[in-house]
Design a protein around this nucleic acid. Sequence first.
DNA 1: GTTCCTGCAAAATTTTTGCATCAGT
DNA 2: ACTGATGCAAAAATTTTGCAGGAAC
Lengths: 148, 148
Amino acid sequence: MTDSAAWREEVKAVLRHEGKRSGGAREAVVDALAGHDCCVSAQEIADELRGGESRVGLASVYRALELLHGEGLVQRVDLGGGGYRYEPILPGGEHHHHVVCDRCGEVTAFEDPTLERAIERMERRLRRVVSAHDVVLHADCRRCAARA
Amino acid sequence: MTDSAAWREEVKAVLRHEGKRSGGAREAVVDALAGHDCCVSAQEIADELRGGESRVGLASVYRALELLHGEGLVQRVDLGGGGYRYEPILPGGEHHHHVVCDRCGEVTAFEDPTLERAIERMERRLRRVVSAHDVVLHADCRRCAARA
DNA sequence: GTTCCTGCAAAATTTTTGCATCAGT
DNA sequence: ACTGATGCAAAAATTTTGCAGGAAC
């Protein structure tokens, strides 16, 4: 089973355990999230769902994302640009960070175990329960760098 | 001379070099930024300035911040909550990162040279020019953790 | 049948832009 | 005087909330 399929199962299990009903919009949002490698915005999810046959309201997308975030199932990522992006917190525990191009908004992901360890050490030193962390690098993407 | 005083001087020099005029609002914003240890929001700056005798418009605060950010003199920080915060990029080069309480929005700062080195190593590995980086930890502050 | 979910529309929040006026050079 | 800077107000963009109708259990 792929990580995203496992994640989808976990989401369903958690929501059922919480007594949440499984309406169409919420499942559609979960499926859309599971189908992406990296973070997506609420608007992108809504557009994707509206592209299909469903009639999902933007508000329902936000409500689903907020619920999933509250349950610790999705991470809300701030990349600048005045909006949020969301991505699944996969059960394997691996996660990545982001490089954003400030010119065109392109987002790419990277992983770095050394950086991860440094952050974990820092979190222990804080003596506070850290629920999540973000690292965002700002750099021109290759296309914008070439054009400049 | 303190770091923030040096920063204020650098800002004035850069703006003069760019042929920017020195109007009241811009200087007021620079002074307000220099008077803070950590990041502040545009609204906070405007409130602070309006508390005094001046009549500074919120739009002017945003325009000043945008200009300073474009010149690489202030860092725009995303801490979630649907807004930006801004802080001076001090000439000493030292900078800190942030811990945000997702319940009450409290922001505290921390420094970690080890983490800094890990990020620099990562940036070199990317082979792209990284103009800035942010690390944001999400953790309940002590008050909210005690209340929960 | 009851309760939660959903979609639409309106509101709230944050940031940007237009424009007439004022100030710095 | 000329040009850029400023304040106010309106607009734009994003997220949240209210509410009536519908679906899940």
